[in-house]
Every structure is written in structure tokens, then in C-alpha cells.
């Protein structure tokens, strides 16, 4: 798996804190950075998923009837 995401949690937090408008206390920052780093690891895995790179089915919300209904059609 190639690491494609380069996220420096502390610098990213400093940038986003003001933009998003959440007052992040100094003592919370270690915990927030830990979770940002964890999310970046997850994003890395998700980014490396072997989907069809030409697919135009982008971020459609999961629909129970359509997505799960396919099961019956294919069996």
C-alpha cells in the first residue's frame, strides 16, 4: 500500500481551528492530533482501495433498497 496522504496533524489543526471556528484548548490538542493521525491512516487505506479509477459513481449515499436489493437479483 502506497502512502498517499501526508498530513501533519499539529500544523493541520492550527490551520483548520480558525477556519472551522472551533476553539480548541491547548490541553485538547494532543488528543485531537491523535485522532487526526488515525483518520489519515484510515483515509490512506480508503484511498488505496482498488476501485475502477474511471468509475463515475462517486459519493452516492448508501440506499438500503437499491444497494441491498441487488442481493436478491444476483443470487
Amino acid at each position: 500500500m502506497t502512502n498517499k496522504i501526508h498530513l501533519a496533524p499539529k500544523a493541520y489543526l492550527d490551520l483548520m481551528e480558525t477556519m472551522i471556528g472551533i476553539p480548541v484548548h491547548e490541553e485538547w490538542k494532543v488528543g485531537v492530533c491523535l485522532h487526526l493521525a488515525n483518520a489519515a491512516r484510515m483515509a490512506d487505506i480508503v484511498e488505496c482501495a482498488e476501485l475502477d479509477p474511471n468509475s463515475l459513481e462517486l459519493a452516492g449515499t448508501f440506499e438500503p433498497d437499491r444497494d441491498n436489493g441487488l442481493m436478491e437479483d444476483t443470487l
Binding site: 483515509a43 480508503v46 482501495a49 459519493a59 452516492g60 448508501f62 444497494d67 441487488l70
Partner: peptide
């Protein structure tokens, strides 16, 4: 990241 995660969720569920 969120948009990609939704796409991957569909793909994985299938």
C-alpha cells in the same frame, strides 16, 4: 476523504 469513503463503502458492501 468523506466522498471517497462513501464510494468505498458501496464497493465493499457489494
Amino acid at each position: 476523504w468523506y466522498a471517497r469513503a462513501q464510494q468505498v463503502r458501496h464497493w465493499y458492501a457489494k
